[in-house]
Amino acid sequence: MATHPSSSIQRAREALASRLRELRLDSGLSARELAAACGWHESKCSRIQSGKQALTDSDIAAWSAACGAGEQTVAELITINRQLDSAYVEWQRMQRGGLKRLQEAVLPLWEQTETFRIYEPGVVPGFFQTQGYASALLDRIAEFFSIPGDGEEAAMARLERQRLLYSGVHRFGVVIEEAVLRARIGGPEIMAGQLGHLLDVMALPSVSLSIVPFTADRSIWPVEGFWILDDEQVVIETVSAKITVEQAGELDLYRRTFAELSAMAVTGAEARRLITTAIATL
């Protein structure tokens, strides 16, 4: 099972903190002496060494200078810290410019990605959403996070990405849970249209859509939704944040998780049967 992404980032923060502690020990400074050299309270050193203190570039530079570290070491530590900062981005921070801008911001990354492997346990992936479904979902997100209403424009921006399905360049391997078909977002009419659209997109040559049925003998339980992009990074959306994973070990965990989920899923006629049955229940 993939570890929770925020846990993996915390471990990476702790690894950086360990590097800084080693610098201090190698320099022969006590935590109190280092704090005095940096002009900090000693408790800040303790928080930094435990991985509980968010670090700025100046914090790392001051710590490194006090320990006599070279410029190359300082630059490496600052780079690691910046990668950590960009790996965990709170939604409230990302949504300040509105939902439409948030949808547009990811488009360059999607355009650069050739192979998508997507797992979603609860919602239809954005590439497959109808305008009605996307509007209902984004309107609720705007309400939940108290974002000024631009759900309709955000939905149009989300739909604009769907041209990638027809480009001939991008490939989409998608696994969803059967629960996605049953979760009524936007009401029966919108949901019926969305499910009908799934039947259309699964016929595209660029798309491989499979569904884990309720009746599957599970080798792995439902996990958080995640997108593997060209085997280079994994993007996860939690309730509070967007998380990017790039560490080799973490990437391998998500690849293995996707493979196990795919093995439990049905495709082709059986997947279409699950969709049409869900439509009938509406």
Results as ranks from 00 to 15, higher is better:
residue 16 L to M: 10
residue 17 A to T: 08
residue 17 A to H: 09
residue 23 L to K: 03
residue 23 L to M: 15
residue 25 L to M: 12
residue 25 L to G: 04
residue 28 G to D: 07
residue 28 G to K: 11
residue 29 L to M: 15
residue 30 S to H: 10
residue 32 R to I: 07
residue 33 E to R: 14
residue 34 L to I: 02
residue 42 E to T: 13
residue 43 S to T: 14
residue 44 K to E: 06
residue 45 C to S: 14
residue 45 C to I: 13
residue 46 S to C: 03
residue 47 R to F: 00
residue 48 I to A: 01
residue 49 Q to Y: 11
residue 50 S to E: 11
residue 51 G to P: 03
residue 51 G to D: 11
residue 51 G to I: 05
residue 55 L to S: 06
residue 56 T to M: 03
residue 56 T to C: 00
residue 57 D to Q: 11
residue 59 D to S: 02
residue 60 I to V: 12
residue 60 I to D: 01
residue 61 A to E: 14
residue 64 S to G: 03
residue 65 A to D: 12
residue 67 C to E: 05
residue 71 E to P: 02
residue 76 E to W: 02
residue 79 T to R: 14
residue 79 T to Y: 06
residue 80 I to H: 11
residue 82 R to S: 08
residue 86 S to Y: 10
residue 92 Q to E: 14
residue 95 Q to F: 14
residue 95 Q to M: 15
residue 106 V to M: 12
residue 109 L to F: 09
residue 110 W to R: 11
residue 110 W to A: 12
residue 112 Q to S: 15
residue 119 Y to S: 06
residue 119 Y to H: 11
residue 122 G to S: 15
residue 123 V to D: 08
residue 129 Q to H: 06
residue 129 Q to M: 02
residue 130 T to Y: 02
residue 135 S to W: 02
residue 137 L to D: 05
residue 138 L to H: 06
residue 139 D to N: 11
residue 140 R to G: 00
residue 143 E to I: 05
residue 144 F to A: 15
